[in-house]
Amino acid sequence: MSDYKLDYLDQLESESIHIMREVAGQFERPALLFSGGKDSIVLVHLALKAFRPGKFPFPLVHIDTGHNFKEALEYRDNLAEEIGERLIVRNVEDTIKLKHLAEPKGKFASRNALQTYTLLDTIEEFKFDACIGGARRDEEKARAKERIFSVRDEFGQWNPKLQRPELWSIYNGKIDKGENVRVFPISNWTELDIWNYIKRENIKLPSIYFAHKREVIEHEGQFVAMSKFVLIEPTDKISVRKVRYRTVGDMTCTAAVESNATKIDDIINEIIATKTSERGETRIDDQVSEAAMEDRKKNGYF
């Protein structure tokens, strides 16, 4: 019977495809939130396996903060064209202008929190009832407690105390009009699983995931890319270093790690050896407070 055994990556893949197909089966107007980061790239790859030769039962949606890496945006546009799926882009910039929102201030001012406004507006505009996202439970302790089908109220808010029990592989996506469900098909994957899968499936990634030379500002031991979005001060320590990105978010709040890894095997080795978590090493926005993610989620964030 040993022929009928699935490797752990196959098990994870099958679980994620099952979840995506539940979305297709249970919702009228789902969407896949695509950021250009590795996790959402893996989601697209899984969707291809789940729905081809049919079309995706959802568009790709990108909430563009305007602070993205150009490599990630190029990748996004190329991918959408290559697979022939619809891409919807909505800009945080427009929301700021339209709603007279205050731009965040400070050295590494992040539009991360403002993203939620644009996301909620986009959900309303297209009447999305389910939004698939690439969050993983190993990333952060608030995420560790969120359901795979996470019901949000009409303000997009997560209430950790009122979560539906999620039993077996049965997903309850029943909602009232105006509510929506955030769905996380790769909840059970870790960072290392993602990289091993990218390697196995030979998935293309934006170039910034691999080591490259970049002008960076050193800030409390982290390296942030020089860009027009960062407030540069005379005391800043600026240098050119060989770096790669472990996560791809906004240029203002994502730090690079020093690395010589130009191949996927090198990256996997570095991740196995690393002693710092993905978000801890690269996300400046999480370090604001102990409960930064929990608070954002309660306000409608992913």
Partner: peptide
């Protein structure tokens, strides 16, 4: 877990944790 839990000194919910060894996830 969550701040909401620490404040009340309780555990609200199931939390999922991950680790792996060369043999198993």
């Amino acid at each position: 877990g969550l701040r909401a839990e620490r404040e009340q000194g309780i555990t609200i919910d199931v939390a999922y944790k991950y680790f792996s060894t060369p043999k198993r996830k």
